[in-house]
Design a protein around this nucleic acid. Structure first.
Lengths: 349, 349
DNA sequence: TTGAAAGCGCTAACAG
DNA sequence: CTGTTAGCGCTTTCAA
């Protein structure tokens, strides 16, 4: 009885079937005769049997495990993505290995090493800073990759991202429609070397063009950081230098919150005198003293779609696989800081 | 050469050693002669060899994998814990399987099932609602458990928690010391059926006792929810019914933020007329219009300690193991909403 | 529809 | 210090 009291063998013996039938019952129940299946299931329950995934992984060479590699779990943007990923993965019977990279390439590589050792099915990566070479390196590590919040260069791999150009356009179109030329529109942006900042700006300019206005009329202010404090400075600055500003678009919510305060410091009321739109729809946007109109990103969906893409990719064979680069649409959430007016009832664009 | 081009065998052949020596170089380098070790390492690098953890897990019966089971990853309290856990785990070569339970016992059980299949070394669980029977059930699933943010009943298992009684005491001691009897102190609390609410209240009362005041002098207000909106209502209420209040302690930061606004609505200035203390030190506490004095919980440390306890437990054998129940100390962070005064220079208690 | 059997790649005695 | 060897528990042909 030595080797009969553990693993499939024990179940098989109790159910009076073979090892293989136990495996089939668990993995391809449809090919097992109902009666047999019942007996096996009963034996499993009886023995409190828990299959050993390590054995399956060893045998199959791959694990139902997805690596999720993000720079920071405390950041609400990434934690929202993470929620989408964990949910989608759990629904499909996959386990998520959470790897926090702190944007450190060495740590990131270490995480990939571990995922490879575990024979993870693949990895979902949200790189903070990611030059092409770093990405190429990651791809080389082996497991299949889906890039999140970044579009993979043509033909290099799969990715899901949120359309930031469109988001900027939505924000400024709203401002244009609701302030109706009452005064200049100001863009408070971070460093344009950051792709998000550059894209959102481009969208802002597109909105001008769509409205038949010269995009150079957009007044641009660069904050030294994308924080509440830097936003406040920018807001004061605007109150002083562009006192007739009718609307301000900030490329993130922290900035927007600060700008409102800075504007107040300078004696301007929001939304009475100036409308302010943020970006990201962080929790703080809804809870502030003046609830923020902001561009909402479908972060949850980003995560879910990333899982879908990865699992779809698993079906295809490595060589003959066409990469997909999905883009998700942001949405504007209108709150008090930049309220709707009758003019806005026809959606811009 | 069939079986020589993969796994330890390939490395062993290239390095001119045996299988076992490869294993030893990787797992117990100190017992391998330096020269041999070098040769093996060189071979590994040469072949881009990635060891297969599944094989090791199968052989050893246990995986260097820790399950982290939390109700919600978007909640900043849990994401902060998660950060601590992922960091501590990565430092020790463990992988973290993130399981989000949404406080659903079925889902939670499913996650435990998966962890068991993976032969996880153990699990760290932060139960939102957890009656004894549910915990007992989890413990039965097999893998070793460490409870987080909850103290395990005497002798039932390991746990790490943050001392909420102490936190409440710190908050109210600060209020007492800085308002010095100028007026009543108000407690804005949630439902006392929630252990945290009950504990923080107890601490508040302890602070009264320590100051030689009858704890029944603490004015208690119960908010219908622990949200900004409910806090605002409570704040208005206080302005109307306890106009001479000198200090308010709210059992979370959302409540505190709302209370400040409600107090303002009622014409009371914070901190001019009233000091307000929150609890939790969420990001919104520091960034609000009036930066919040609040009780900071060492969430990161909670996560790190949980990992340490689990890994320590792994060393001991199952039967002869004494459970540890660690308690972490909160700390008060003084900001503008309840500033320090000279009277406060001597720490209360 | 079910069974027999050959490994998957690694670890841990044990022997040398 | 290094080598030999016997599995860990599952999947997957192939045959019955």
């Amino acid at each position: 009885m030595a080797k009969h009291d553990i693993g499939f063998a024990a179940v098989a013996r109790l159910a009076g079937v073979s090892n293989a039938t136990v495996s089939n019952t668990l993995n391809r129940p449809e090919i097992v005769a109902p009666a047999t299946r019942e007996r096996v299931l009963a034996a499993i329950a009886e023995l409190d049997f828990v299959p050993n995934r390590a054995a399956a992984t060893l045998r199959q060479g791959t694990n139902r495990l997805i690596g999720l590699v993000i720079p920071d779990i405390v950041n609400p943007f990434y934690s929202a993505i993470t929620r989408g990923v964990t949910e989608a993965a759990a629904e499909r019977g996959y386990t998520v290995a959470l790897c926090v990279s702190h944007d450190d390439p060495d740590l990131e590589l270490q995480h990939f090493e571990m995922l490879a050792e575990h024979r993870a099915a693949g990895a979902l990566v949200a790189p903070l800073t990611a030059d092409a070479s770093r990405l190429a390196q990651l791809r080389r590590v082996g497991s299949r990759l889906v890039l999140m919040d970044r579009t993979a260069p043509e033909g290099t791999g799969c990715s899901v991202a949120i359309d930031d150009v469109r988001g900027g356009e939505l924000a400024v179109a709203h401002l244009l429609a609701t302030t109706g030329g009452r005064g200049p529109i100001v863009l408070v942006n971070g460093d344009r070397a950051i792709p998000q900042c550059e894209d959102r700006r481009e969208g802002a300019r597109n909105a001008f063009i769509a409205a038949g206005i010269d995009p150079d009329e957009l007044v641009e202010v660069t904050a030294r950081e994308m924080t509440v404090d830097a936003g406040r400075e920018a807001g004061r600055d605007i109150a002083a230098r562009t006192p007739d500003a009718a609307g301000v678009f900030c490329t993130n919510d922290q900035l927007a919150l600060g700008v409102i305060r800075g504007l107040n410091d300078g004696g301007r009321d929001v939304p009475g005198d100036v409308s302010v739109v943020g970006y990201g729809d962080l929790p703080l946007a809804a809870d502030g003293r003046v609830p923020l109109t902001t561009v909402e990103q479908p972060k949850d969906e980003l995560g879910r779609v990333a899982v879908e893409i990865l699992l779809a990719e698993l079906g295809t064979d490595r060589s003959s696989h066409t990469h997909v680069a999905r883009t998700l649409e942001p949405r504007i959430v209108v709150r008090e800081s930049a309220p709707a007016t009758s003019r806005d009832s026809i959606p811009a664009s």
